[in-house]
Design a protein around this nucleic acid. Sequence first.
RNA 1: UGCCCGAUGGUGUAAUGGUAGCACGAACGACUCUGACUCGUUCUGUCUAGGUUCAAAUCCUAGUCGGGCAGCCA
Length: 600
Amino acid sequence: MTDSENKAAPSTPSDFIRDIVAADLASGRHTEIVTRFPPEPNGYLHLGHVRSICLNFGIARENNGRCNLRFDDTNPAKEEVEYVEAIVTDVKWLIAGWADHCLGFKAKGALPNEQLVDGNPDFFAAPVPNSAIPNPQSAIKAEPFFASDYFETLYAYALDLIRRGKAYVCDLSPEDTEKYRGAPDQPGTDSPWRNRSVDENLDLFARMRAGEYPDAARTLRAKIDMASPNVWLRDPLLYRIRHVGHHHAGDGWCIYPLYDYAHCLSDYVEGVTHSLCSLEFVPHRPLYDWILENLSLPRALPRQYEFAKLLPTYTLLSKRNILRLVKENIVSGWDDPRLPTIVGLRRRGVPAAALRRFAIETGITTYNGITDIAVFEHALRDELNNAAERRLAVLRPIKLVLTNIAPGETVECEAVNNPQSESPTKRPLALTREVFIEFDDFAEVPPPKFFRLKPGGEVRLKYACIIKLDEIVKDDSGAVTELRCTADLSTRSGHPNADKKVKGTIHWVSASECIDAEVRLYDRLFTVPEPAGEEDFMKVLNPKSLETVNAKLEPSLAGRCAGERFQFERLGYFTLDSRDSKPDRLVFNRTITLRDTWAK
RNA sequence: UGCCCGAUGGUGUAAUGGUAGCACGAACGACUCUGACUCGUUCUGUCUAGGUUCAAAUCCUAGUCGGGCAGCCA
């Protein structure tokens, strides 16, 4: 099954960033739009990242532009190849068939008219234009970008900044650096090393790179303004010394650039036009601009715009907190289907299209809000309703005997695979003397307006016939063990009384033909809308976030592939578990229940 | 009592000086061989106070409230 085309999609999203992009195109400031999604490979991608991915790839897609997946890998101490690979997989899965043709890819070589910095022969050019991509399907094989691939270029730019008197090597210890920075309401103090000569700075910086100094002994700093009301402008650090290898760049470096220095220049090198990030970077924007503007760069400069993060209710999104759930075995791993990680959501059965719809429909603004997870659940149910074939499955079985059907006799019925499709297909279904129905679908003492099976009552077995309850069989303890009914075979589809109406229709499976499966019923992980706001989110865990049942399924559910999604009628949407399901021992995950307006 | 950003129904958003609209949600009803889907009806809003204007959610001023910023993290 592939993700359905998004029928209900809003035509084209509109927000203040798209307005800016449109204006830049209209004014001729840019002729091609280039964006980027820049995760640090220090953890798994989650629901919160979906907004950024959809925004960046969406804008590229709408403008026939490009979006680079670029790893912001400037801090080797926190990063791992495992995360790089997981992120690539997740991003490609999320945009497959939607914006994969916008995924930029790496191309080496100097740009036309580019002035190589400091004679550096290894300048990374902007990727080839979108028009050079032969076909959308192959484009998704594109390689991701790495900020660490630009280390040589970044170093050359740093030399340039030093020569221009805009950067200096500082010998202050980390503690003193903090002290000299002052406080937000208190100006800082100039570093005693601030006025070293260009030659001395050049020499010292080269020796930093050569590994002559221990970690944290010296830094390279921008020379801006220690009294600036914006603390990010108080001579921010550009490079630090770290004698560690790098997961992507190898062992050649012991100085590493910091985010603010690496990010703007990486954007520039890639030809990014609009650099979109979250609100906490607003105070960094003047620094982003300062670095680019002080280098006298020949090409158009990228510009940074900020938007609010996506924060859904009943969800914990920070990597640190998710890690704690994993470490303390609250969940089974990063791919636990209860987690908001992309791997977890995928394993749970969430289609990429539902994630995209959630991101697009919740919009882009410049103020933080909290989004009701119901918006996501609605998008999810809607995608699944259109795409998933229907099947019958009984989660908590109770035996029901149709006394007027002989043992061994089968009554052939037909079931519709998906009533939402334009020309629905059908499959055969065998009704037998013994069937299982859902325990909840029977009540000896029914509450008011109970439409299901009750003493003396009639109900329809979906796709089969109407039955009447004659007798309730109990064991010594008084527990119901069996329901004995008569089947009115004349009410089957195509038979004389097919149109007979009863208030309730229930699902069932043949006791002799059904197959067994483990079904994992997932619910939200937390009992409160804002778990992150609790003093300890561990105290608001939902004890029923996972319930496992041994279910009975109709036989057509055998031999299915991991990732296939079904609606179990009247219950919800389910998918084969990609990790634990085996042909001889099926495991299904409940993605989400059906909407339930009957729930008391 | 430093700087920056923001404020539209319960929630997420739109309206770019000219009818406050959409979605989610909730309630009720219709339909139904899924108490689903679909359809219909209803519900609730421009933070406050001034000002500019024929006209303000939108522009200005002040206030209130909320968020962010002082990593050699990103």
